[in-house]
Design a protein around this nucleic acid. Structure first.
Lengths: 194, 194
DNA sequence: CTATGTGAATTTATTCACAGCA
DNA sequence: TGCTGTGAATAAATTCACATAG
C-alpha cells in the first residue's frame, strides 16, 4: 500500500484526478488485477467504467496506513546522514514534520538547520511531553542501541534506524532498519554476466 | 538471503565459528525451519547434529549472491547524503569498495574525501574503462533521471537510488530505490493506539 | 463499452513432522 | 541426543475469468 500511495501522490502532483488500475499498474510496474485485489480488500474505492478518483483514494489509503493525522518526527544524530534527513523535503506529503533534532556534540547544539534547532541528546526525555512518537536514528553504529533505549524510555513508539546493526527494543516499539550496504548487496544477484 | 548473510557476518565478527538454524533464527527474528528450507534450496551446507560452519556458509551465500568477487562502486552527488555514503564503513564486508565519486559543483571537484577524489560528472564516461559497474545515486530529485541515463550510457549495470522519484532505465539495468519518506510512512500502521 | 470487484483455479510460500546423519 | 534436510500438509498469495455497475 505505501507504494500505491506514493504513485497516487505522484499522479496528484502532476494534476491527474483519476486513474485506472491499468494506468497505475503501468506506472508502478505491477499487475492491474493485483492493485484491484489489494484495494478491494480494504473496501470499494473505485467506480466501474471510470477508475479511481485519486483524491478520495489517497485519503482512504492514508487512513488505512494511519497517515491521516500529522505526525512529528525527531532526528537523532546530526552528522552527514542526519543533515541529509533534515534537508529532505519529501516528508510533508505523508503528513510528517520534523519537529526536533538531537546530537551529543556541543559544537552542534544550538545551531539551526531549516527551522529546527539542534538540542542536546540529554533532552530526549522531553519528547513525550512534546507529543513526538516517531524517531529517525542516524547516529554511529556503536551508539545506536543506547540511543534506541533512550528513545523507548522517552515514549517513542516507532523508529527508522539507519545504523547497520541489530537494535533490540520492546515489542510494542516498531523498528525498520535501513542498511545501505545490505541493500547494495542485493544488486549483484540481478547482474547476470560477470 | 542478504539478511542471513548479514547475520552470519555479524556472528563471524563476534568470533563465532558455527551456528544452528535455531540460533540464527533467534538472532534474526525468523523461524528456524524457514532458514533450513532456504539454505537447502541452494544446497546442503550444514552438518547434522552440529549446525552450520559460519565461514563456509558465508562464502557459499556470497557466491550465490554474486558477492564473491570484489566490486567497485561509484557515488554520484556528493551532498550531505553522498558524503554520508562516502564516510560509511560497512561496504567492505560485502566485497564492495567505493572507487569513484562525482559531483557537478566546481567547488567540490578535486577535493578528497577518504581516499577518493571528487570528479566532474562529465567524467562519468570513464566508468566503463575503470570496470565500475555499480553506482549509488545521491543527487537532488530533479537530476536523478538525467544522472541515471548517463550512468546507463557509461555501462553501469545496477543502481542504488536515493532520490524519491521514479527513474526509468533499460531492463538490463537493475535499480533499487530507497525512499526514506515512504519507509517512514510504513511505521504508523504498526503503532496501534493513536 | 470500459473498468471495477470477486469468486475460482492455480501457483507459490509457509509450517509441520520426522527420517537420517553426526 | 541434536540438528539438518525434506516430503507432506497447510496456508497464502497470485492469476485468471467474468459478472456487474457506470
Amino acid at each position: 500500500m505505501p507504494v500505491y500511495l506514493r504513485g497516487l501522490l505522484f499522479l496528484a502532483e502532476n494534476g491527474r484526478e483519476s486513474v485506472s488500475s491499468r494506468n497505475l499498474a503501468e506506472l508502478l510496474g505491477v499487475n492491474a488485477w493485483q492493485i484491484r485485489k489489494d484495494f478491494s480488500y480494504f473496501g470499494d474505492f473505485g467506480t466501474r467504467g471510470v477508475g479511481y478518483e485519486i483524491k478520495t483514494l489517497t485519503s482512504q489509503i492514508k487512513k488505512i496506513l494511519r497517515l491521516d493525522i500529522g505526525r512529528k518526527i525527531a532526528v537523532v544524530g546530526i552528522g552527514n546522514l542526519g543533515s541529509a534527513v533534515l534537508a529532505y523535503r519529501g516528508f510533508g506529503i505523508y503528513g510528517f514534520a520534523i519537529a526536533a533534532a538531537f546530537d551529543n556534540d556541543a559544537k552542534k547544539i544550538g545551531k539551526k538547520t531549516g527551522n529546527v534547532e539542534i538540542e542536546d541528546v540529554a533532552n530526549l526525555g522531553t519528547l513525550k511531553r512534546r507529543k513526538i512518537d516517531l524517531a529517525i536514528i542516524t547516529v554511529p553504529q556503536d551508539a545506536a542501541q543506547a540511543t534506541a533505549d533512550r528513545l523507548v524510555e522517552a515514549g517513542i513508539r516507532a523508529i527508522l534506524n539507519f545504523s547497520p546493526c541489530y537494535i533490540t527494543v520492546p515489542k510494542k516499539v516498531k523498528v525498520i532498519t535501513i542498511d545501505i550496504a545490505m541493500d547494495l548487496a542485493r544488486l549483484p544477484y540481478y547482474m547476470p554476466t560477470s
